[in-house]
């Protein structure tokens, strides 16, 4: 479904991504794990068109998207929940969801009702300004907003960041549910333990390179991973 082939991304002089290649098959959950600054978010931002690679190619549903502008990818079926949620803090919960449906607003009422079914707490706060929501609610809004476009591929960047263990568990339950409902997921996480539990396959990034790859359970068993990312 998604194929990233040999991309190199620079921030000015800094070589942030070095020869990254990865693949996501339909109906998979693929995790990108690694330390802070390893290039996980940069990889997602390059896939969704916010950054450009100097080399290689990215293809989505058999179409080359290396030069496609970010705003055009939503209607092709890609949704990206960025790091730090990036919901529109000065708009209401409802308006945030409407923005999620900007390119696909045919059944907007039903889609909003679906999001509210999945996240009942958002329903009570639908006319509230998003900046007043708690961190967990903001994350739910960010995911809900992305679901409004009916993505085939959902890319989540650090959905567990800054959340309490109970909320982290809830977010991962939601990821599993979305996956069961047929959505393909590319997940970036610092919480390697949780990520490897849900992922079919994972890539480990270190200083802008892919260091290891394997199935979720393989990597969870690997001594190297245990030492570096799983605290033992």
């Amino acid at each position: 479904m998604l194929r990233v082939d040999n991309i190199n991304v620079y921030y000015g002089q800094i070589h942030a991504l070095k020869d990254i290649s990865l693949e996501v098959q339909e109906h998979e959950i693929v995790a990108l794990i690694g330390a802070n600054g390893a290039g996980k978010s940069t990889t997602l931002r390059t896939i969704s068109g916010l950054l450009r690679s100097k080399t290689g190619s990215i293809s989505f549903l058999n179409e080359d998207i290396s030069r496609t502008e970010a705003y055009k990818l939503v209607s092709k079926g890609m949704a990206h929940v960025p790091e730090g949620r990036r919901i529109f803090l000065q708009m209401t919960v409802l308006e945030n969801l409407e923005m999620g449906a900007y390119v696909n607003s045919t059944n907007i009422k039903e889609d909003i009702a679906d999001v509210f079914d999945r996240f009942p707490r958002l329903k009570h706060r639908r006319n509230q300004i998003a900046g007043t929501l708690s961190g967990g609610e903001q994350q739910m809004l960010a995911i809900g907003r992305a679901l409004m476009s009916h993505p085939k591929l959902l890319m989540l960047d650090e959905p567990s960041m800054g959340l309490s263990p109970i909320l982290v568990q809830q977010i991962f339950d939601i990821i599993k549910e979305l996956h069961a409902a047929g959505t393909t997921i590319l997940l970036v996480e610092q919480n390697a333990e949780m990520a490897l539990q849900v992922a079919d396959r994972a890539y480990v990034l270190e200083s802008g390179r892919i260091k290891l790859t394997g199935t979720g359970s393989e990597l969870a068993q690997s001594d190297e991973i245990k030492k570096a990312y799983l605290g033992g």
């Binding site: 970010a70 209607s75 696909n104």
Partner: peptide, 18 residues
């Protein structure tokens, strides 16, 4: 509304397809 979204966060607005 899309313009308000852009004024708040250009990158996030772009990810919405705006």
């Amino acid at each position: 509304k899309g313009m308000r979204a852009v004024s708040e966060d250009k990158a996030a607005a772009e990810l919405m397809g705006i």
